[in-house]
Design a protein around this nucleic acid. Structure first.
Lengths: 146, 146
DNA sequence: ATATTACTTAAAGTACACTTTGAGTCAACA
DNA sequence: TGTTGACTCAAAGTGTACTTTAAGTAATAT
């Protein structure tokens, strides 16, 4: 008795690329890096299944939190090695999260400065070239030196 | 009558680099890109002043919101051209902010997935190797397909 | 006085993550 | 049946943002 879902659809690399928002070359590149392992047709061509979509999307989420290709590769290797490596994987993800949160805070500060500057320009624009302030004077006023 | 603040300190490129958290080569690189313009001593060596610290830090804030060196260069060029270019600068900063906010939302979603995964591993670890789930089965359960 | 360290330049090298090229094979349609 | 488009591979190329090297000059410390 074989368990099989109704949608056992197969995608060519081109169709799959569109599905996950990557290009075919990028998928091949990820494959050489060991992140994906598509199936092959008798003629040697790759095909991808529904489950591969979730896997790639998950990879892209991890990538989006700042994991490098190298880290993703390590993660995949650990996963392939079985449940014994769960602590390692967990440590890696926690480290990624920790680094992410640091970055996240920094980036929020950067946004605040950007917003300040936008507001400053808007105020200045409203003031229509009255009181043309020198850059040095601006710096003195602006001076949020951390 | 010359206006002068008490702290008209001068920094060598090395000291200045430490002050702003960059390396001397990076400062020279930024200079070739037109982002900074230090003063020179009689012997040809660069020196930087207090105000340059604020300027570089501001640049780094903008950079931290996603602005490329090229965009920063454009910004600097517009600034040098005077108040007539304020609208252009404002547009650029608003575009940077808009792009930033899109990225910010995406990245928050990535974090959520990362958190889910960490929780999943922690639960699994608590369950001590009981019910060793296959990867496919995991994917089926995990399947937060956007 | 000499050794170390910091500076100067231009140019080449590096890391990351792809992207493009080239040469060839395979599949689908008029 | 031809020709268009998608696929195969390996290898070279690209863009961004630095980083390193090399060859030389200058300042500081012992």
């Amino acid at each position: 008795m074989t368990t099989q879902t109704a949608t056992e659809e197969q995608y060519t690399i081109g169709d799959f690329a569109k599905k996950v928002g990557l290009t075919a070359p990028t998928l091949r590149y990820y494959e050489t890096e060991g992140l994906i392992e598509p199936h092959r047709l008798a003629n040697g061509r790759r095909y991808y299944e529904e489950a591969d979509i979730n896997w790639v999307k998950f990879l892209l989420h991890l990538k989006g939190t700042g994991m490098s290709i190298t880290e993703l590769k390590q993660y995949v290797l650990w996963r392939a090695a079985g449940d014994d490596t769960i602590p390692e994987r967990l440590d890696l993800l926690k480290k990624v999260k920790s680094d992410f949160l640091v970055q996240f805070n920094e980036v929020q500060h950067h946004l605040q400065i950007l917003n300040d500057k936008i507001n400053w320009y808007e105020e200045k624009e409203a003031g229509v070239t009255r009181d043309p302030e020198s850059f040095r004077a601006y710096l003195d006023r602006f001076g949020h030196h951390e």
